[in-house]
């Protein structure tokens, strides 16, 4: 992380990255969202964002932040308001109220946005009759980047061989890679990706995961990636923001979310009858599942192991049951 901090030192949100890395006193609590810690200037900040389309409140008071050097998953079922949030953040949609800032500023006020933010929205936003290279060169021209960046970015996403081909013949996966290449053109420090795994085959998803981790953890970029399929991002993200019907329902680290503050330890003991009361004495809530098998709340696996050792009770099994993330996701986002 030290290397990341050095790399980021010239960036406006470098301070945020360093604060996040060493956990120094620069951190402060965000008063509007209990439990959230934000830096002095996060790479992405969303405050009380509201956007309605006619009678539908697509986004209803969403707030969260994304720090440099981390991947944040923005999760929710289809129609939850993920895309609208990202489009507000990118200046494409005007919010009714609230703020959406990149590097402390609204996207529309960035003078060279491609060099600060790389965005991947729908995979269909290409002219089918134009070649991949020309698509990127047009963006380079408008952004004042050298035309050579087009081929470099195509090579980075593994599309060098298709550079001169019309997008018409591209598979969905190739279009996703081309969209990612467009995001890479200006070598930005912030990436905003809307459902980037859509249409990718398993190998493509694996490649994307590695790529996003590389951007965040090795290049110190802030990555915000939305998905409605949890398993796509589960192995990639550091932090999770969950939205359902326009409202933020949960945010935190992946670990916080799965442990859910109520971790359960499953203990299989030869002499469970003796171990149970001992665990209760130590403050655990013990549930007897079946003969010789207990489920304990309020104690860690290590604590349970130590108590068993003290009592000289032989254990057959000692497992910290992590709540299944998919189940948490469904519980949080289903109709209530």
């Amino acid at each position: 992380m030290a290397a990341v901090a050095v790399l980021l030192i010239t960036r406006p949100w470098g301070a945020a990255a360093r604060a996040g890395a060493d956990g120094s006193s620069l951190k402060r609590r965000n008063p509007s969202v209990p439990g959230t810690i934000i830096g002095p200037m996060a790479a992405i900040e969303i405050h009380d964002l509201v956007k309605s389309f006619g009678p539908v409140r697509a986004v209803d008071g969403v707030s969260f932040t994304v720090e440099a050097g981390s991947v944040t998953g923005y999760l929710g079922p289809n129609g939850a308001g993920k895309t609208t949030t990202l489009r507000c953040l990118l200046g494409l949609v005007a919010p009714d109220s609230g703020r959406a800032l990149v590097g402390g500023r609204p996207y529309a006020s960035l003078t060279a946005p491609l060099t600060e933010v790389g965005a991947v929205l729908e995979a269909t936003s290409f002219h089918p009759g134009r070649t991949a290279r020309n698509h990127l060169r047009i963006l380079c021209t408008a952004a004042g980047l050298p035309q050579s960046r087009a081929d470099e970015a195509l090579a980075q996403v593994g599309l060098a061989d298709a550079a001169g081909k019309r997008v018409l013949g591209f598979s969905l996966g190739m279009r996703q890679r081309l969209a990612l290449a467009a995001a890479l053109l200006g070598r930005p420090r912030v990436y905003i990706l809307d459902e980037p795994a859509n249409g990718l085959d398993p190998a493509g998803i694996e490649w994307l995961r590695g790529f996003l981790r590389h951007l965040a953890h090795e290049q110190g970029a802030a990555v915000l990636v939305s998905s409605h399929v949890l398993s796509e991002v589960e192995q990639t993200v550091d932090n999770v923001v969950i939205i359902a019907r326009g409202r933020l329902v949960r945010q935190g680290t992946l670990t916080e979310l799965t442990s859910n503050g109520r971790s359960v330890v499953r203990v299989g003991a030869v002499n469970a009858a003796e171990l149970g009361p001992a665990l209760e004495t130590a403050g655990g809530a013990v549930e007897r599942v079946e003969d010789g098998l207990l489920r304990v709340r309020g104690l860690t696996a290590e604590e349970v192991g130590r108590i068993a050792l003290d009592r000289r009770v032989a254990l057959r099994e000692l497992v910290e049951e992590r709540t299944d993330l998919q189940k948490v996701f469904l519980d949080l986002t289903e109709e209530r």
Binding site: L92, L114, V117, L121, F126
Partner: peptide, 18 residues
């Protein structure tokens, strides 16, 4: 209209938000 038909308007305005 090609910008709207093929949604390249998104990339256009991301590159030049003004």
């Amino acid at each position: 209209t090609a910008e709207y038909r093929y949604q390249t308007i998104t990339g256009t305005f991301l590159t030049t938000p003004r």
